[in-house]
């Protein structure tokens, strides 16, 4: 199958996009010149560095973080060496029981195969109960 023809080349051949209007040069350059005469706006990072309130805010944030890091207790991991309050310990024990109930061991494929593929001649549970009944009679 051949590639479809490019429709752009014949459509646009010999045509050219419009040139900018002649007056645009003067307008553009005069506007740029006006901006050029103004002092260049300072760099943002320099503005941050040279601004007293921003520096104070930054220093206050750093101090607050350090103080918080030193004073607040760490909640990560188990609180080793620390006795839990009784109500917390009780709820934790409940949670463990609940977790054990929820996390039942998964059925393994091999076990399922043993259950379903029964050797010939071995009766299933319904048959075996019938046999037991016959024996008893």
């Amino acid at each position: 199958m051949s590639e479809p023809r490019d429709p752009v080349t014949p459509l646009l051949s010999s045509l050219a996009p419009s040139e900018p209007p002649a007056s645009l040069r003067a307008r553009t350059l005069s506007r740029a010149a006006r901006v050029w005469e103004q002092p260049a706006p300072p760099d943002r990072w320099r503005q941050v560095r040279e601004s007293r309130p921003l520096r104070l805010a930054w220093a206050a944030a750093v101090v607050a973080l350090i103080v918080a890091n030193l004073t607040l207790p760490s909640w990560s991991g188990s609180p080793a060496g620390r006795a839990l309050p009784p109500e917390v310990a009780a709820s934790a024990a409940q949670d463990r029981e609940l977790q054990e109930l929820v996390e039942l061991p998964r059925l393994r494929e091999t076990l399922v195969a043993i259950e379903t593929v029964r050797p010939a001649g071995v009766p299933d549970r319904a048959d075996s109960t019938d046999l037991d009944k016959e024996k008893s009679t």
Partner: peptide
């Protein structure tokens, strides 16, 4: 035309 002017303003800035 506005875009062209703005490009040159950016260059000046």
């Amino acid at each position: 035309a506005e875009v062209v002017q703005e490009v040159f303003v950016r260059m000046a800035e």
